[in-house]
């Protein structure tokens, strides 16, 4: 197990390094940084001075090392647009996106797991097919369109929930549903398949033969085993959702990381974009690492 864990951690670290190189390259592709820092009115001399002052005249590899060292200390430099440090901007918006992600994941799991279990128990009935239809629809629906439709129905027509912003928990309901619905089908299918597998396994058959009530079988044996891979998938889905929340945040004017990233892209504020890419990638790497280690802990066969 230890060897596996070390190997897995090594991979995670090298992936993290590669991603950091990619996001560093992204910033440098976006144009001349010295000109951007100097502002639109600066003349040649000022730009040259800024280039020297920020060390932008050094070889790229040296610049990368310096940048990576600072990034390790959570220092991503200053925004080109706001008179603020990128870290402060990102930190201010992070809770909104994390809250949205957590609620959306909760919505997805709370709907998908029971639905998957029901579908497996009532395999090949109308219930199974309905669950399948819900999941197929979820995969086919453009999330921003779904979000707009939710606003139209629940905010404008019924006036139950607010339209935009993140002031109260109510503001998170619609965006979380829109985001969570997208993640739901995968979780549901996995739960259903896991349940089917477990239900056909020997010990459940034995339990049935012993005359245990179906509910007890469900709770005591089947669910517990079927849920393990779902936790791993949930971790991965959470990472995807943080990345995908950019669209939902735009629809609901939620001032989270996604909205900040989108606006920063539109404003050519690439230090911010680069930091957000890096932060989201790191969260994803950490989550998948945790999920893999957890899985390996639970299932020795995976330690290869």
């Amino acid at each position: 197990m230890l060897a596996f864990a070390l190997r897995r951690i090594l991979v995670a670290v090298s992936v993290a390094l590669t991603v950091s190189v990619a996001s560093f390259v992204l910033l440098h592709l976006s144009g001349d940084i010295a000109t951007a820092i100097a502002g639109p009115e600066a003349i040649g001399e000022q730009i040259a001075a800024i280039r020297a002052q920020h060390g932008l005249d050094r070889p790229l590899i040296v610049q990368y090392a310096a940048w990576a060292w600072r990034a390790l200390h959570l220092d991503f430099g200053r925004s080109f647009y706001f008179p603020e440090h990128v870290t402060d901007l990102v930190a201010a918006r992070m809770p909104v996106t994390l809250t949205l992600g957590v609620i959306a994941l909760a919505v997805a799991l709370l709907v998908a797991i029971p639905l998957g279990v029901l579908a497996a128990f009532h395999r090949d009935t109308w219930l199974d097919r309905a669950a399948l239809a819900v999941s197929v629809l979820g995969q086919a629906m453009p999330s921003f369109w779904f979000g707009l439709t939710l606003i139209l129905i629940f905010s404008v027509n019924l006036r139950w929930l607010p339209v935009s912003g993140n002031a109260t928990w109510k503001h998170f309901v619609l965006p979380a549903v829109a985001l969570g619905y997208y993640a739901m089908p995968a979780v549901m299918r996995l739960t259903r398949n896991g349940m089917l597998e477990v239900l056909s396994s020997d010990y459940v058959r034995t339990a049935r033969a012993k005359g245990l009530a179906p509910r007890k079988i469900l709770v005591r044996h089947a669910l517990r085993n079927a849920v393990i891979p779902v936790i791993a998938l949930a971790a991965v889905q959470f990472g995807f959702m943080l990345g995908g929340s950019i669209v939902i945040e735009a629809v609901f004017s939620l001032q989270g990381l996604g909205q900040l990233a989108w606006e920063s892209i539109a404003r050519n504020d690439f230090p911010v974009v680069q930091a957000i890419v890096l932060v989201l990638a790191m969260i994803y790497i950490a989550l998948t690492l945790a999920a893999d280690l957890l899985n390996a802990l639970l299932d020795p066969r995976l330690r290869t």
Binding site: V156, V163, S164, A250, S253, Q259
Partner: peptide, 18 residues
């Protein structure tokens, strides 16, 4: 002063009293 970048969200906010 609230920044709401999206025009439709602004309108919906007004219609719903936000």
């Amino acid at each position: 002063f609230r920044v709401i970048p999206d025009g439709d969200s602004r309108m919906a906010e007004l219609m719903t009293g936000g």
